[in-house]
């Protein structure tokens, strides 16, 4: 044990033996509150959107390069895998947007009470589903 952070992680049990304290969170033991699930989903969707920028870059670079390159990217986006990726990307983007607004409201100092963060959590889930469905309904009509 080299520093104070380690020292804080040990304690004596009822036999007087020095033991390491258990680390939190016990993801497999806890009931999953909405805020915990959304916090994890916010990070995962953020990383997913990072991978998704490859799709945006490919699309823009192809459009700037040639008709053949653009035709390739457009046919990929229209394939089953392409539509699945686009759907996942759009859902992640819309979720990360609404979840991010929730985080910004917290940063401003509002919404920390249990009823508030449960309500805002479910509002994020409902808004994500509704907006994703609307975007795809309008998008498929325009396609």
């Amino acid at each position: 044990m080299r520093d104070v952070r380690d020292a804080l992680m040990v304690a004596r049990n009822t036999d007087g033996k020095l033991v390491r304290r258990p680390l939190s969170p016990h993801i497999q033991v806890y009931r999953w509150p909405i805020s915990m699930a959304l916090s994890i989903a916010h990070r995962i969707s953020g990383v997913g959107l990072g991978v998704g920028t490859l799709l945006l870059t490919w699309w823009l670079v192809a459009a700037a390069t040639s008709d053949a390159a653009f035709a390739t990217v457009q046919s990929f986006m229209g394939s089953a895998i392409g539509i699945l990726l686009l759907f996942g990307w759009s859902a992640a983007l819309i979720f990360h947007l609404f979840s991010g607004i929730r985080h910004l409201v917290w940063d401003a100092g509002y919404g920390f009470d249990a009823p508030d963060y449960n309500t805002s959590g479910w509002a994020v889930v409902i808004a994500t589903v509704v907006v994703t469905v609307v975007v795809w309904a309008v998008g498929l009509m325009a396609w």
């Binding site: 044990m1 080299r2 952070r5 380690d6 992680m9 020095l18």
Partner: peptide, 20 residues
């Protein structure tokens, strides 16, 4: 931490200021 696999024991303590 680095020695987490060993049985817990205290051989040194540093204050938070000393650490920083």
């Amino acid at each position: 931490m680095s020695d987490s696999h060993k049985a817990p024991h205290v051989d040194m303590l540093r204050s938070p200021l000393g650490r920083a």
